[in-house]
Design a protein around this nucleic acid. Structure first.
Length: 546
RNA sequence: GCGCCUGUAGCUCAGUAGGAUAGAGCAACUGCCUUCUAAGCAGUGGGUCAGGGGUUCGAAUCCCUUCAGGCGCGCCA
């Protein structure tokens, strides 16, 4: 729709002797300013040395495709306002009905491959609400880019190698000993949640007291592996119930086992980005804009966490994606510059890696902060929130906010609102349309083919407003894809539902007038196509009954 | 001390890559179900866009600065 107008404007402006004008097209805030508007004449006034309104006039006169518009006005300081003709809108709507997804979505990615890594929580405890935010945003972004024509790989990075999983194993081991009535000191800084006892009990059920005589050194591998795998299983299950499935799970251990870490270090060494100092091996991150150089191998010979991160990102890069997106909690923002430095050191532009920060979530209950301490095992899990508030509501709350805004999640408010929650507002529109279709079929009407519908019967303001809104969906969609901002879809859907409900309330779709009914059913079908598309992208259900 | 994020209605948040008179939901108040679902609709109020300066035809949006909140700044993971 706006692509079409852009072409019209380009041709017209070319006639004025300007070849490469940047044409902005926007949807005016007020209806009286038309369906689309462009401030392009104002921008051109400097180049052409003429007053903006005069240029606007020249542009309008140069437009050939006048029949697409009901009106073209020049307003204010030099805006050109376009109002589409009803015939043109009808034609466009019919195209939408015919092409469905192909119309509402655009192939922006052209099959290019993008990897999105998100959640990647340590498998040392259950997912909490902050992970849920990353999960909701990551999944929605993945769906969005996929819909936009990219081949997306959703990846979860599993930190199964470091000291944390070992500490998990030790925590479980200690609990295990205690449950068997033996005295065993709980490790300092160990994990204390109820889930630790759960895992310990599982081990007892499986092999009773086989390990009770052993020292942790002897039982370490078993306890660590069993515990983190159990956690990972639980995490995967939580995510599945949250509606999120990953394509690949990259294990950190595997990077070591397959010598990816060594290879990455060799690679950087050959590229002369490493040096030794004080018995440690350093990466020259400052050469690529980082604050300080970073240690990869400590003087005691141990790798730092950064070493496997280098190997991991090298692996990502070598998989040949056109872009890599990491979604991190904002508390990791200090790592952006060092990883971008790695990307650059490996010979790629730093833009090849895009890090999306998801800000912290403050959990409240009735306005009061809920105390969270992972160490003490006091925290509200994602599963608990899902069960108390609901997955769709939880996701929607995450997706109605920009990822980089701090978020207050009040459990009471989320629940209270559930009756009039915005997510239901959108889903309800879809359910109502389904219901209309059922009703229409009961009346013996055909609700499948709309080729023959006389869409020119859709003439009241509410209907035209809805049609225009539908036809701007591709524009919103494109903006969301290019800016990598799924929340734009969320707001669009609320606006669309906000046009449908009043219409529904005021007018009947199914009436005695068969032809009008058919046209209105066609409109409903178009709304449904867009609603379903948007809800699908956001990872939300589109129930037919509520 | 340095870096990143944030500051918009009582509350939670949008504001479409600088555009026209600043938007939604919640909360408050008043009406609407013998009709395709009332998880809905109609109506009523509410603003120093944190403060100050600058850039230009035009700024919530870009730059500088001050203030406030959050998060980071290890040979931790």
């Amino acid at each position: 729709m706006e692509k079409n107008l852009r072409k019209v404007l380009e041709r017209a402006i070319k006639k004025l002797g300007v070849a490469d004008a940047v044409i902005e097209i926007e949807i005016p805030r007020e209806e009286k300013f038309g369906d689309f508007a462009t401030p392009v004449a104002m921008g051109l006034s400097k180049v052409l040395r003429k007053p903006p309104r005069k240029i606007a006039e020249d542009i309008v006169n140069a437009i050939e495709e006048k029949d697409e518009f009901e009106r073209i006005d020049i307003a204010g300081p030099g805006f050109i306002n376009f109002t589409f003709s009803r015939e043109f809108l009808g034609f466009q709507l019919k195209t939408l009905l015919k092409e469905k997804e192909r119309f509402v979505r655009k192939d922006l990615g052209k099959g290019r491959r993008i990897q999105i890594e998100f959640v990647s929580a340590n498998p040392t405890g259950p997912l909490h609400l902050g992970h849920g935010r990353g999960a909701a945003v990551g999944a929605a972004l993945s769906n969005l880019l996929e819909a936009g024509g990219y081949a997306v790989e959703r990846e979860y990075y599993v930190n199964d190698a470091g000291r944390q999983v070992k500490l998990l194993g030790l925590s479980v081991f200690a609990k295990y000993q205690q449950l068997l009535g033996l005295e065993y000191p709980f490790p300092e800084g160990g994990y204390r949640g109820d889930y630790i006892e759960g895992i310990a009990r599982q081990i007892i059920d499986k092999c009773v007291s086989k390990y009770s005589e052993m020292s942790f050194r002897e039982a370490e591998d078993f306890f660590t592996d069993f515990s983190y795998r159990e956690m990972l299983r639980e995490i995967e299950n939580d995510l599945k119930d949250f509606g999120i499935v990953f394509d690949t799970w990259q294990s950190e251990r595997e990077l070591y086992a397959k010598n990816d870490v060594d290879k990455a270090i060799d690679d950087l060494r050959h590229r002369r980005h490493l040096y030794e100092k004080d018995g440690a091996l350093w990466f020259k991150a400052t050469a690529f804009g980082d604050d300080k150089d970073r240690v990869i191998v400590k003087s005691d010979g141990e790798f730092t966490y950064f070493a496997s991160d280098i190997a991991y990102h090298r692996k990502k890069v070598e998989k040949g994606f056109s872009e890599i997106i990491d979604i991190w909690g904002a508390d990791h923002h200090g790592y952006i510059s060092r990883l971008k430095a790695v990307i650059q050191a490996l010979g790629y532009p730093r833009e090849h890696l895009k890090v999306l920060l998801v800000q912290m979530v403050t959990l409240l209950r009735g306005g009061k902060p809920v105390q969270m301490s992972k160490r003490a095992g006091e925290f509200v899990t994602l599963r608990e929130v899902m069960e108390e508030v609901g997955s769709d509501t939880t996701k929607f709350i995450f997706l109605t906010r920009r990822p980089d805004s701090h978020l207050e999640f009040d459990l009471e408010v989320a629940k209270e609102q559930s009756a009039e929650n915005p997510v239901f507002y959108v889903q309800y529109a879809n359910a109502r349309i389904s219901s209309i279709f059922v009703h229409a079929r009961e009346k013996g009407m055909d609700t499948t083919g709309f080729e023959g519908a006389n869409l020119s019967l859709l003439s009241i303001p509410e209907e035209l407003r809805i049609i225009k809104k539908l036809l701007t969906y591709p524009m919103t969609f494109e903006g969301a894809v290019l800016s990598r901002e799924p929340h734009r879809i969320t707001f669009y859907l609320q606006e669309l539902a906000g046009l449908f409900h009043p219409y529904y309330n005021k007018y009947k779709v199914v009436t005695d007038d068969a032809e009008l009914s058919k046209a209105r059913l066609a409109l409903c079908e178009a709304i449904r196509i867009v609603l379903k598309d948007g809800l699908h992208i956001l990872g939300l259900s589109a129930p037919e009954r509520m």
